[in-house]
Design a protein around this nucleic acid. Sequence first.
DNA 1: TACATATTTGAGCGTACACTACATTTCTCT
DNA 2: AGAGAAATGTAGTGTACGCTCAAATATGTA
Lengths: 190, 190
Amino acid sequence: MGRYRVGLETRERILSATRRLLSEVGVDGVTLKAITDQARVGAGSFYNLFASKEEAVFEVVREAIEAVDPDPDGAGTDTLADLVDAFVTFMTGSSPIARIYLQLAVGRGLTDRAIATRVVRSHRTRVDRFTDAWLREDPTLTPEAAERRAQTMLAALTGLGLSVLLDETFDMRAHALELLPSSAVSSTSP
Amino acid sequence: MGRYRVGLETRERILSATRRLLSEVGVDGVTLKAITDQARVGAGSFYNLFASKEEAVFEVVREAIEAVDPDPDGAGTDTLADLVDAFVTFMTGSSPIARIYLQLAVGRGLTDRAIATRVVRSHRTRVDRFTDAWLREDPTLTPEAAERRAQTMLAALTGLGLSVLLDETFDMRAHALELLPSSAVSSTSP
DNA sequence: TACATATTTGAGCGTACACTACATTTCTCT
DNA sequence: AGAGAAATGTAGTGTACGCTCAAATATGTA
């Protein structure tokens, strides 16, 4: 089902409106009417392009996450410090999308099956990224040990992210550095 | 406006029902109908005792957060391993309180200022507990360094708690052990 | 230009929900 | 017992929301 050019433009307008609303009024304020008003689009047009309201919201969050990904192509050259840095930037950056992401992941992921599935899948991808980086950092690790460390590190980063969301003065970066093995602390990749 | 005895009993029934629903069906499942059905009470009775649904939910949340607060009379002899162990047990134990607490702290605490304040305060108390334990573990640490490590460790434990909420098969204990300094890994306090 | 396909509109459907009105019953105190 | 306050159940009301549908219009292609 090919799209006409105007359809793709409308899609962008809808995503922009959703992004803006998420930032300005939060996840609860994003109603379909708010989106379609903001995008100057009828409800029917919205559903011609998105299967549900949630789909648009997730697309926005997904793009926000990708925007800070140090290695979008998965080339496998990013270091642990790079990944940690990217996560910290995502959480402490100016965009409020990080808050939305955590809220959706935990606040709704626990009860909404569709959301839980997406959260788990993206989490899985991130764990793999961190696992690979751990193996590059310390080739003597078994794959299992590397994954365990990746899981722990990611969970810790999530917890630190929560801390900074609850208390904006929390110095997430300083704390996150403690999660790195001492050999990797000094600098990010050259 | 004094209350009759039956009114106070009804109030307790409503709070119990709300508490139970929070743990069984989650925050989103707590509708007024669910509460009044569970409490075997009419909607009119509910609004005779509470100004709004939120008021009842908030009362339960407040009690749940208080229940999570570490014992303020703690003798101050816990080791880091003890504290980690207690946290893991709390998270993976049979009581649904941990679930409620985390879900509300993240799901609502990010947007509800009143809840955020309570979460931050109980978190603060726990950080102090962990800081003391770090100092006992390694007396060469400066108080600042100890607190930084305490914050990181607690955030990591919280993140691991989130992991186990999203995936019940997640082995929180194994991962939590990685957070301890190597000298403390082998055993809990004698 | 003719045709197929994509896009748009917006009134309105179904539903879920918090909350209310009010007649009735129960409670407590004197 | 009697009176007034409190508690109760029912049957709603109002509203907000996600989403649908059919008809009308725009777009791309041969």
